[in-house]
């Protein structure tokens, strides 16, 4: 059984800064594995462990630095990783990204493709739908409980009014909810071993993605404007320099809140 997990590298702490010049997310600084994707990696590892066989393959698209996210997921226990990286892919919107990911998945022919519920940086939660559509595979999203048996995946799906239980034949695509599990903390052995696991880097050409279907050229959405969130009004910042507790109490007393 082969399980592919699509993961994304996001800025550490999911601090959201937008570069006004490019209107893209500012990805400078440390990167981290999208926390929602850690749930998908964990679920893949559990499925593999309970089956007693199989392979967990990571797939990501992004700058070469996206290797940070891969490293964390490999340290958790995934078997190998594929990084799609190409200058021409920069600025891809979800449509363009879904083409590249779908092509890479077609090469791998996994029985199951897992996604996290959303990206912690852009808060996008549609990529799994686009990829499932391109692969022409059934999709279950927001899955809080997942079982595999006899070539059928069963997902208990959280909805507003309770749970839907949905079955789909493999191969299928599943986006897991962040309540599905508690991702494991990689062991030091896992961290050190991650470096030695196979990591493959592919370009768009390797995947046969035409350049007009990637990057800005292949994107069908455009960011027109960006603005700062509205100000919270008058606020005062009290730094923790030792006198902070007194300052906070004085402030609360002044407002007659204590």
């Amino acid at each position: 059984m082969r399980i592919a997990v699509c993961v994304k590298q996001v800025p550490e702490g999911a601090a959201k800064r937008i570069d006004p010049a490019t209107r893209r997310l500012d990805r400078a600084g440390e990167g981290a594995l999208n926390a929602y994707d850690a749930n998908a990696v964990e679920e893949a590892l559990r499925l593999k462990e309970s089956a007693g066989e199989g392979e967990v393959v990571l797939l990501t698209m992004g700058p070469a630095r996206a290797a940070d996210a891969i490293r964390k997921a490999l340290a958790m226990g995934a078997d190998r990783a594929i990084l799609v990286t190409d200058d021409a892919a920069a600025g891809s919107d979800l449509l363009a990204t879904s083409i590249a990911l779908a092509r890479a998945l077609e090469r791998e022919q996994p029985d199951l493709v897992l996604f996290g519920q959303q990206a912690a940086d852009s808060d996008g939660a549609v990529l799994w739908g686009a990829v499932a559509d391109r692969l022409r595979r059934p999709l279950i999203s927001q899955v809080a409980e997942l079982t595999l048996a006899d070539g059928v995946v069963t997902g208990k799906r959280q909805s507003e009014f309770g749970y839907d239980v949905i079955r789909a034949p493999l191969p299928a695509v599943v986006a897991v909810s962040d309540s599905i599990n508690e991702p494991r903390y990689p062991s030091l052995k896992g961290i050190m071993g991650a470096k030695k696991k196979p990591q493959e880097t592919l370009t768009l050409a390797d995947l046969g993605v035409e350049s007009d279907r990637a990057g800005e050229a292949g994107s069908r959405t455009e960011v027109l404007a960006l603005s700062e969130p509205p100000s919270r009004g008058e606020s005062r910042r009290i730094d923790g320099d030792g006198a902070a507790p007194e300052a906070i109490i004085a402030f609360l007393a002044e407002k007659r809140l204590v």
Partner: peptide, 21 residues
């Protein structure tokens, strides 16, 4: 529980760290 004993030793439940680690 930290999993550091054994340092650079590979296998046998040891961490297999780099010499720098």
């Amino acid at each position: 529980a930290l999993g550091i004993a054994g340092g650079t030793i590979e296998g046998y439940g040891c961490p297999g760290m780099s010499a720098t680690a």
